[in-house]
């Protein structure tokens, strides 16, 4: 769906490139996560892909067509969710959506349904100047989806949201994926990336250092161990921990005996978190 080859982008009046020779491919119907610390080049890459930044070097193909040869019709096919909420403050939530909906060539999906899904229908007639940041972010989210685009770009989609609303938005993103939409997410939230993305790319200082499925990355970098925590009846029910190798675990007599004789409180496999993998690969922390 999207193919990027040797993309380089340098902002005007800057000597050094912000995005340096990156290449990746986003297959149709997948969620692709672009992960990296602030200033790594995530948003710049997204701005190139959404046509907000031109004069880039390299090649970007979208739906089999060079990005440079798309005209404004491109925006009938893509949806863009910005990192910061941007709406007309004096207009109501519904008026804002109706305004942007009027620009599309085909009718948008039911705005009432969308507002209802993200919990904003009761506030549809409220001016956006009275909205909290989280409410504005949810409105941003609808604007990116309301015209049923094939490709959706989100920049930190759960930023500023409480856990309940973040869950609602993440469920909608997964639902869109199951509808065959191709989704590009830039984030520094590893939990979101791990949960949502089919593939993630780590970007630091404008370069991609690794691309793979989050599960593969976690398994490759983790220890093949199981950590068992239990209450030891002989030591005043104090908590103890033991580690066992995954290999041959089913025949490990010590492990089996522990399960049968002790009060087990938790069993965890010791695969790495995505954040661990990121730090190990790039030597940088996500901020």
């Amino acid at each position: 769906m999207i193919l990027v080859k040797k993309l380089v982008y340098t902002y005007p009046q800057r000597k050094e490139a912000t995005v340096r020779d990156i290449s990746f491919e986003m297959p149709k119907g997948e969620i692709f996560g672009f992960l990296g610390p602030s200033g790594a080049g995530k948003s710049t890459t997204q701005k190139v892909l959404t046509g907000l930044l031109r004069n880039y070097e390299g090649q970007v193909m979208v739906k089999g067509k060079d990005l440079k040869s798309w005209n404004s019709d491109y925006y009938n096919h893509i949806g863009v969710g910005f990192e910061l909420p941007n709406h007309y403050l004096k207009l109501t939530a519904l008026e804002n959506l109706q305004l942007f909906a009027s620009f599309y060539d085909k009718p948008t999906q039911s705005l009432q349904t969308w507002l209802d899904r993200v919990g904003l229908w009761k506030d549809a007639q409220v001016r956006v100047e009275n909205f909290s940041k989280g409410m504005k972010m949810r409105l941003n989210f609808i604007r990116a989806l309301m015209h049923d685009p094939d490709i959706i770009f989100f920049d930190e989609p759960t930023s500023g949201l409480d856990p309940v609303n973040a869950r609602i938005l993440k469920d909608i993103i997964l639902e869109q994926k199951h509808l065959g939409k191709t989704i590009f997410i830039t984030t520094h939230n590893m939990h979101d990336a791990d949960e949502l993305c089919d593939q993630v790319a780590f970007i630091v200082d404008g370069k991609i250092s690794l691309i793979d499925a989050p599960q593969n990355l976690r398994l490759q970098s983790g220890k093949k161990l199981v950590k068992v925590t239990y209450r030891d009846a002989q030591l005043n029910a104090s908590l103890n921990t033991r580690e066992y190798a995954m290999e041959g675990l089913g025949n490990n007599s010590d492990f089996l005996e522990l399960l049968q004789t002790q009060d087990i409180t938790s069993i965890h496999s010791e695969e790495a978190t995505l954040e661990d993998v990121f730090i190990k690969t790039t030597g940088k922390k996500l901020t």
Binding site: T50, L52, S72, Y75, N76, F82, H87, Y88, F103, D105
Partner: peptide
């Protein structure tokens, strides 16, 4: 206000002629 809120960027990702 549009400039401050970056609404020009939103307009630029709408299917409007340049």
């Amino acid at each position: 206000e549009e400039k401050d809120l970056q609404l020009f960027s939103v307009m630029r990702v709408m299917p409007l002629a340049p």
